[in-house]
């Protein structure tokens, strides 16, 4: 009776979340198209200055152990999240877009629940986009030449509650090889074997809170970067938001 014991349990837990890290790591070495995506012929529809609601960035920093386990690190994650928030705020200020951070409704469990559902839906949609738009073997014939993903009109609740036209969702995973792992990687290279190290992976979407449409999407996959320090975090956000329309 433990948390990692059965396949049945895994169907209950948000295994997409577990799988996603693995999928992204795999894609590092696979046939992946890079570059941001926008709806076919789609332009942003807003008047005056755009207001962007920043959904809570889903950030996790981990250490890759000698044996290849990914060990989540709470201290690095707290630091990384703070750097990511700062970098996002700076980025928006530079572009003169107004950004308001998401604030969970206090004392309103129903609303908080609905917001969580939107975040879970976004993650599911994001995973579909990555699988079927970026990963060539899985590109769907009906989606090959179009980009028409969305979260549906329920996201309008966020527009009304936060008075924003768009919502920005950010997902980032960053892992670093432990010193022992680095030594191993070097040793294995000497003997002619490859051994993967840490990676920086993630994706971001901009969602129109009127239509629910994903109006911009980008994927980040690389073996460099470090969210633990402000400067590299800023660089990571610039890379993640490459081609961002605001």
């Amino acid at each position: 009776m433990n948390i990692r014991l059965s396949p049945a349990l895994r169907t209950l837990l948000p295994h997409r979340l577990l799988a996603l890290g693995a999928v992204l790591a795999l894609m590092l070495s696979a046939c992946v198209t890079q570059g941001h995506l926008e709806p076919t012929g789609g332009t942003l529809r807003h008047e005056g200055q755009a207001v962007v609601l920043l959904m809570p960035p889903d950030v996790e920093l981990s250490e890759l152990t000698v044996g290849g386990l990914v060990e989540p690190n709470a201290e690095w994650t707290a630091q990384g999240l703070s750097n990511v928030n700062q970098a996002l705020a700076d980025r928006m200020r530079r572009r003169k877009a107004a950004m308001i951070p998401y604030d969970a409704p206090v004392g309103d469990a129903g609303r908080a629940h609905d917001h969580q559902q939107i975040m879970k839906l976004h993650r599911a949609v994001g995973v579909s986009i990555i699988q079927h738009k970026y990963f060539e073997p899985l590109v769907l014939p009906t989606k090959k030449d179009v980009f028409d993903w969305g979260l549906g009109p329920d996201v309008q609740m966020l527009r009304e509650e936060y008075n924003a036209q768009y919502a920005l969702f950010v997902y980032l995973r960053d892992s670093y090889s432990s010193p022992g792992r680095v030594a191993m990687m070097v040793a294995m290279t000497v003997f002619g074997y490859g051994m993967p190290g840490g990676a920086q992976t993630g994706f971001a979407s901009l969602v129109d809170l009127g239509s629910g449409e994903v109006v911009w999407f980008n994927l980040l996959l690389r073996t460099t970067g470090d969210l633990r320090s402000p400067e590299p975090a800023r660089e990571a956000i610039d890379a993640l938001l490459a081609g961002f329309p605001l």
Binding site: L13, L17, P72, N73, A74, Q116, K120
Partner: peptide, 21 residues
């Protein structure tokens, strides 16, 4: 915060948030 145990808690907090809804 600096312990491996905190990392495990953080991970399970995330799992719990997802399961709760």
């Amino acid at each position: 915060l600096e312990t491996d145990e905190a990392g495990l808690w953080m991970y399970m907090d995330r799992m719990e948030t997802a399961l709760a809804t």
